[in-house]
């Protein structure tokens, strides 16, 4: 099949208007107001997600790569759920766990300890108040980053 190119406008090109719309600042304000209405429910579901991740801890002593596959899926959800409502270290810890699992999968060197530290830190970070604990949160997060970077197979070469 020869490559065929269509130059017509997409539905989005056709239907977007600028008259009567919102500027970025207005849209951000409107989104934040709407997100406030679901904050309590979303945070409750974040806590459930973290509990489900902690419940996987015993399975790390069995098939660790399969368990990490499930934890990766949970962590990816934590990033999206925590992002709008929590200090950046909470989604950051979940991203760090995803990265750690990727590194361990690439190198084939699995460490249950490194995963457990991430899970416990995630729980701790979530339990800390949003205000007044910035330095402590940053310290925990920087410790997680060190663990993850050490697992990077590229860093070992």
């Amino acid at each position: 099949m020869k490559a065929k190119l269509s130059y017509g406008p997409t539905g989005l090109n056709r239907r977007v208007r600028t008259d009567g719309g919102l500027t970025q600042a207005e849209a951000v304000k409107a989104v934040e107001a709407r997100l406030d209405t679901i904050k309590a429910d979303v945070l409750a579901s974040l806590d459930t997600l973290i509990e489900e991740m902690l419940a996987e801890k015993p399975a790390l002593s069995g098939d660790i790569s399969a368990t990490c596959g499930r934890l990766y899926a949970f962590a990816s959800q934590v990033v999206g759920v925590a992002g709008p409502f929590c200090p950046p270290e909470v989604p950051g810890a979940a991203v760090s766990l995803c990265e750690l699992i990727d590194h361990m999968g690439a190198s084939g060197k699995w460490s249950a300890g490194a995963v457990i530290v991430h899970l416990d830190s995630l729980k701790l970070l979530r339990s800390m108040p949003d205000e007044g604990q910035k330095a402590a949160r940053e310290k925990i997060f920087s410790g997680l980053r060190k663990i993850t970077l050490q697992a990077d197979p590229k860093a070992a070469t």
Partner: peptide, 18 residues
């Protein structure tokens, strides 16, 4: 579609977008 220009005052009307 009217002219869309990127910038802080750019407006976007998505009412008709599915």
């Amino acid at each position: 579609m009217t002219n869309l220009v990127a910038g802080p005052d750019s407006k976007l009307n998505l009412e008709k977008v599915n």
